[in-house]
Design a protein around this nucleic acid. Structure first.
Lengths: 336, 336
DNA sequence: TTGTACGCGTTATCAT
DNA sequence: ATGATAACGCGTACAA
């Protein structure tokens, strides 16, 4: 089998405990025995067994990262951010895709707490605030969500502020008939509210006919719904979107109706996924620092772990508007 | 602390072993005691400690998935494929980004074998065939690579065949001056060879001036190099690419030089990443079933684990050409 | 069908 | 500064 501490101890003529001390740099040890142990370790090629350490110490140096879908272009960067700080701190990360299913989410929490992970990160959870709260009391958890679970460590994207700014941008370009293509998600209408805020800030009345809410956001669905929207209300000159994927669908719908963005329809997205700058016209959008977001939640989780679960905080990430082509600002078009 | 088998055993008035038997569905147990134990488990909310089980049994029900970069659009789907079969078989997966650094790769292998993972999946490894071979003898490993490590379980993408077919496609559309934008990767010129194969199959002589090899593939780099290429050899009418990201850069370069794809320059990619059908013109490319690929490597790893490392196989995934817009086939343009 | 006792590799509590 | 020994929670011979 693998070489253990006992083997090292025998080879170095010391006790197991001494080996343990050397491996973990703890306690005072004479330099000579220290070197002797180190030599034995090197010669035998000893590697500590983290599982055994986990059983004895209760710490596994592993965390779980639970996300809805790694194929959603929002998440890869975030995952990378989480992993970077995790790795730097000696943690490994279990990746768990819930497929946007709350039950799978719960299942994963169960399974991984059984594997004694030191902490769990929940991103874009489909659980409601109460469930999240409950999970947070039972486990060491950091959450990325727009909900407001009580007594938890959470970081949020200020979606309401963000969409107010994007909508205002459109209004300031002269648009008055501004539509919205969003996500219908019970218990979270942050971004929709931001859209309304933006309209109100410019004295534009809200019009339900200008709004389409999708059960889930895909480019195809956004395209279909937007075709419908533009048929029902062709007077719309601009559309704000829940995110970039929706914005892409909106632009495709416009193109299919012979309306060119941004001249015939201004479009703004949200998130600034990699695609946003690769499509034509390039998407004006709200940049969400996804990598940093990942770092933030992992940092948060570290605090929760250090405080043995007794840590609360609600942080917000900063947004930055990226004006590209799809909104028409670059051409300063007068809009009727 | 958490509730253990002992607690359950006491509550149910049985021995620990009996509880163990119930939990693992092994051995004959009278239905009455079985129910008694099950009740106790439910009442106490007992969850087996996988770490302890791992120490005792040597199996942790965890595997490591090592990839170069989750932000590379090729990988999210693959990761999902791996996770789907892993999860179905009761395994959790550690995600490890090596940042394309062979040293980090080796480090991760070390760390995770220390965590006693039952197996390791290596994708797009930056290690050479010999190193891979060495890793495979020391650990339970399944590899996705175009290299040919000895005595290992590997699945490959037939890149040479694939690029031959893409290049042939261009030749069959009438192109004779066909360029190639590829990746320079010591020890693997599969796709470049396929490009040459395609030319040869149509009696077209190879011309080094038509080839650009990038040290790493990014859209920006591909754009720059392609501008250079098209300046040096403006007579080129078509370009085959190592992958879709490169193809994107090629199309951008063409556009920036006033050459419209596909009319003024036919372009074909490889991989069929999600972007391929979202950009305009849509990319003609070789579809690589990434989700299935993930399932294949994980299946392979399961075999390796079951065989205790004594398992070799070299599987190939099937490719499918997707003709979209960027190659010009749809318009049947005569090319001079 | 069920139970006893030991081992897995490490940490942690005492001593010395 | 170093060592003996008991946990940690579960699997597994071997018994009964």
């Amino acid at each position: 089998m693998a070489v253990t501490m006992r083997d090292v101890a025998e080879k170095a003529n010391v006790s197991i405990k001494t080996v343990s001390r050397v491996v973990n740099n703890q306690g005072e040890i004479s330099e000579t025995t220290r070197q002797r142990v180190l030599d034995a370790i090197r010669q035998l090629g000893y590697r500590p067994n983290i599982v055994a350490r986990g059983l004895a110490s209760g710490r596994t140096a592993s965390v779980a990262l639970i996300i809805p879908q790694i194929t959603d272009p929002f998440f890869p960067e975030l995952v990378l951010g989480v992993e970077s700080v995790a790795h730097r701190q000696g943690y490994s990360v279990f990746l768990c895709n819930t497929n946007e299913d709350p039950q799978q989410e719960l299942d994963y929490i169960d399974i991984l707490s059984g594997k004694q992970v030191d902490g769990i990160i929940l991103c874009g959870s489909r659980l409601d605030a109460e469930q999240l709260s409950a999970v947070a009391t039972r486990h060491h958890v950091a959450i990325l969500t727009s909900r407001r679970p009580a007594h938890a460590a959470v970081v949020s994207i200020p979606g309401r502020t963000g969409l107010r700014r994007m909508t205002s941008h459109l209004a300031e370009l002269g648009h008055r008939k501004i539509g919205y293509v969003g996500l219908y998600w019970p218990g979270d209408q942050e971004r929709l509210q931001g859209y309304y805020d933006g309209l109100a800030a410019h004295g534009i009345g809200a019009n339900d006919r200008y709004v389409r809410m999708l059960p889930t956001i895909t480019v195809d669905l956004a395209r279909h719904m937007t075709r419908d929207l533009l048929h029902a209300a062709p007077e719309i000159t601009a559309i704000a979107c829940y995110n970039d994927l929706a914005a892409l669908g909106v632009m495709q719908a416009a193109a299919s109706l012979g309306r060119k963005a941004p001249e015939d329809l201004a479009v703004v997205g949200f998130d600034d996924i990699p695609l946003a700058s690769l499509v034509s016209p390039q998407l004006t959008t709200m940049h969400v620092p996804k990598y940093m977001l990942g770092q933030m939640v992992m940092d948060l989780l570290l605090k929760v772990i250090a405080a043995k679960g007794d840590y609360e905080e609600h942080a917000y990430v900063e947004l930055r508007m990226i004006v590209r082509e799809s909104c028409g600002a670059k051409n300063r078009l007068p809009v009727g």
